[in-house]
Amino acid sequence: MNTIATIDVQRASQLLKLLGDPTRLTMMKLLKSHECCVCEFVEIFKMSQPAISQHLRRLRDIELVKEERKGQWIFFSINENHEDFPFIQSILEQLPEQNESIAELEAQGLRISCN
């Protein structure tokens, strides 16, 4: 039995177009299991802060990701309450884990911790 709710073709097309960018798709996979801040994505993707912020803005604009301020940092995570989360999750489950990126950040001392 398929537990994924049906999704309108137009909406699915919009989401697939947004996730068709390798950076945004990788961000979503990372956010599936880790909260991250912009500066961590800058290190992971070797991109400028404005470029990373632009990718996150596009994901945030349709509320696929949410942000939470912790001290001076803003952390991003997947919005699991989004109506299209089951569709997104089914895509992300097909992708390889990205934990090595987080492990590299930790090894370099670049992982942000607010504990």
Rank of each mutant, 00 (worst) to 15 (best):
A103Q: 13
G109T: 01
G109A: 04
I91T: 04
L19E: 00
Q98K: 14
E80T: 14
F75E: 00
E106P: 06
L56E: 02
I44T: 06
R69P: 04
Q72L: 13
N115K: 15
S13Q: 14
Q89M: 07
E104N: 13
L16K: 10
L92S: 01
I78R: 01
Q14F: 09
S113V: 10
Q108Y: 09
L15N: 05
T6P: 07
I91R: 06
A103T: 09
T3I: 12
K66G: 11
N99V: 09
I4P: 00
I7W: 07
S77P: 03
Q54G: 09
T23K: 12
P96M: 05
M47R: 12
I52Y: 06
S13I: 05
L25I: 07
S13K: 14
I91Y: 05
T26N: 11
V38A: 14
M27H: 02
N79K: 08
R57K: 14
L110C: 05
L30A: 02
E43R: 13
F85A: 06
D84L: 05
I88W: 02
L25N: 11
K70R: 15
L95H: 07
M47C: 06
G109S: 03
D21L: 08
K70T: 00
S48D: 08
K46E: 15
L15G: 00
D84I: 04
E100G: 07
S53Q: 15
I62F: 12
I91C: 01
V9R: 15
A12I: 04
D84S: 12
A107R: 13
N2V: 13
C37I: 03
E68C: 03
Q14M: 11
Q49F: 03
